[in-house]
Amino acid sequence: MGDILLDVIDLKIHFFTDEGVVKAVDGVDLAIERGKTLCLVGESGCGKSVTCRAFLRLIANPGRLVSGEMHFRSSTNGTIDLAQLDPKGSAIRDIRGKEIAMIFQEPMTSLSLMHTVGDQIMESVLLHENVLKPEARDRAIEMLQRVGIPKPDRLVDEYPFRLSGGMRQRAMIAMALSCNPTMLIADEPTTALDVTTQAQILDLMLDLQRQDNMTLMFITHDLGVVAEIADDVAVMYLGRIVERASVDTIFNAPQHPYTQALLRSIPKIAMQRDELDPIKGMVPSPYRRPSGCTFHPRCSRRIEACNRIVPSVTELAPGHTVRCLLYENIQETEALQHG
């Protein structure tokens, strides 16, 4: 692999609720390459959003970062382990918005309706860069122009509730990019938009990414979006990344049974089929996660050991890893886990 911007090792985030502990993220390893687009894919509740919020240390109570390392190559301060930073401290605040920016799912509620678009964009600029208000305002207008908002010098003083959903998401992107971040995390930024607007926003994000050579981490459960934008794909299931490969490999030669089932479940126009082919069973309750490989109760290729042994990460080819007992030496793993 090339130049790694963010290297996540064995990340665990657990939520300590009154009903019990929810292991939302339970041992995620993920290397994010500079300048590439990585798509994090998975069903609702698999821990995608929690994982990427952890990068910015945005996990709120009762969630806690239990263990793990997140080595980030800062453009100014060398390599920082984000997991070691105080989530309320100034070190992480300097990274938020400036080096790693984030776009959220709901443009309606993710912007404050009581503050103008310009005010909310200028805020980032004023916070991270040594500029005065007029300059920050010019930057806000310039950013709005870049994201394709018409009449940016007028819209800068507009309140978000007067904009359409697509325009709001554009404003959100303008806000995130206003300080030229090294990395942009987008948490399902197109889910709340209609299909036409979705396509426009995706194109816009890809354009901006290429222009700035920005690293993009894109969270989605829409495999169509993945096919369109991703360089690499990480497939997540119940708090673990089960397969990680280039976008071509994921779509053409997926190895993990979950990835395979996920791709089978997409209806294809070219094929005549009367019924959908969903993944069998339900996503288990977060409080009662299956033992061993968490996917084994729903897996069509499961073997005897699957409910006992937690699969470890196996590298099938350079850049292609999978977490499945079918691809590893079971005796060896068992000896490791029980010995």
């Binding site: 910015l56 945005l58 709120a60 309320k88 938020r96 709901e106 993710s110 912007l111 805020e123 916070l127």
Partner: peptide, 14 residues
């Protein structure tokens, strides 16, 4: 718990 609070936090505000 509204998303706009998280947005503000993600910007790096104290």
């Amino acid at each position: 718990n509204k998303p706009y609070v998280e947005t503000a936090r993600a910007k790096g505000l104290s």
